[in-house]
């Protein structure tokens, strides 16, 4: 993956202009990938339990919308206390919605993909309800800083993502949460017989995912200083799932790698930025994503590996399906 990356990189050499702050494509990539990293971190834990959270994109939009709405109605939009209240409000709302997901999955026992689909659909509507279908534009320096501010010459967003990554890492690896999540995802029945209360852990993980999505929502809206209930965080859940899978966490659950996820998110953002820089429509990066998804999944698929090994020992390498897929790309 890194190799793929470096192949792309020479096209827009890492320019590092100094203007009081550092600028340049690599910095941009880091800054732009911050929301994705956040969402993907939460998604990693959800996937590690063998679940999936489709609602994160909608949650981004909701949290961003609540924060922006609060700021836009406040008298002093630049006061830190206004911004903090806004963040707290939005964060709290996201936690409630995360708890809703957790309730459906852990307590009622609905399949994760279906349970979170509900909020994925309804959440978009809620976000638009909050913004009343408008794009709420705000002019608040402290809020704007979340997305565009600088700290120690680097964009603040990078530090937020980094802090979140460290926090999640500490939260999972300094406590036994990580172990228990991996255990539940790796073998639910064995975990039950070892006395693990998996319901609580699963519930917690969905709340955590919502929290991460909320912060990502702040960044996305702060970046453009406006909240668009329709577009904010659109399809970020798919990118996040992709980042998690690229990062080496199996969709079947079990072992997870936060570092891998961060790397995966960076790769995806690099891909998007590269395509953008090459003056191709940003949507075309989807083509590459499709190829990456299939390739990564095939590599992870035991069935594929078994077949590949057998074929290779037979004669011709390369199974049919991926080749055909790849041939279609240039078409």
């Amino acid at each position: 993956m890194i190799a793929v990356n470096t192949v792309y990189r020479p096209g827009f050499l890492s320019i590092e202009v100094n203007d009081g702050h550092l600028y340049g494509t690599p910095i941009d990539i880091l800054r732009l990938s911050a929301p994705l990293i956040l969402v993907a971190l939460g998604m990693t834990l959800v996937i590690a339990t063998g679940g999936i959270d489709l609602s994160v994109g909608s949650l981004c939009a909701i949290s961003g919308a609540i924060a922006c709405l609060h700021i836009s109605t406040a008298t002093d939009r630049n006061s830190p206390s206004t911004v903090l209240t806004a963040l707290a409000l939005a964060f709290g709302a996201a936690l409630v919605l995360g708890a809703w997901n957790g309730l459906l999955v852990a307590v009622i026992g609905i399949q994760p993909i279906i349970a979170t689909l509900i909020l994925m659909v309804a959440g978009r509507g809620l976000a638009q309800l909050i913004t009343e279908g408008q794009i709420i534009t705000i002019n608040s320096a402290p809020y704007r800083a979340i997305g565009l501010g600088h700290f120690l010459t680097l964009p603040l967003a990078i530090f937020i993502a980094l802090a979140a990554a460290l926090l999640v890492a500490a939260f999972t690896r300094r406590t036994a949460l990580g172990l228990i999540v991996e255990s539940v995802g790796g073998n639910a029945e064995a975990s039950r017989l070892a006395g693990i209360r998996s319901g609580r852990v699963v519930f917690l993980v969905y709340v955590l995912s919502a929290a991460c999505a909320a912060v990502a929502g702040f960044m996305i809206t702060a970046n453009v200083s406006s909240a668009d209930g329709n577009a904010a965080g659109l399809w970020i859940e798919l990118d996040a799932i992709l980042a998690v899978v690229i990062g080496g966490t199996s969709l079947a659950g079990g072992r997870f790698s936060l570092g891998g996820t961060v790397l995966g998110a960076l790769i995806i953002q690099t891909l998007t930025t590269t395509v953008y820089a090459m003056n191709i429509s940003p949507q075309t990066s989807l083509l590459f994503k499709a190829v990456v998804v299939i390739a990564v999944c095939l590599i992870q698929s035991p069935a594929f590996r078994a077949k590949f090994r057998r074929r290779r020992s037979d004669r011709t390498p390369g199974p049919a399906a991926p080749q055909r897929k790849k041939e279609q790309v240039p078409a």
């Binding site: 172990l179 228990i180 991996e182 790796g186 029945e189 975990s191 070892a194 693990i196 079990g254």
Partner: peptide
């Protein structure tokens, strides 16, 4: 029903106590 195959020997051993 017993082991969690992907987890290490150490993690499998402490699982019940940790739970």
């Amino acid at each position: 029903e017993g082991i969690v195959p992907e987890l290490s020997v150490r993690e499998n051993m402490i699982l019940a106590m940790q739970a």
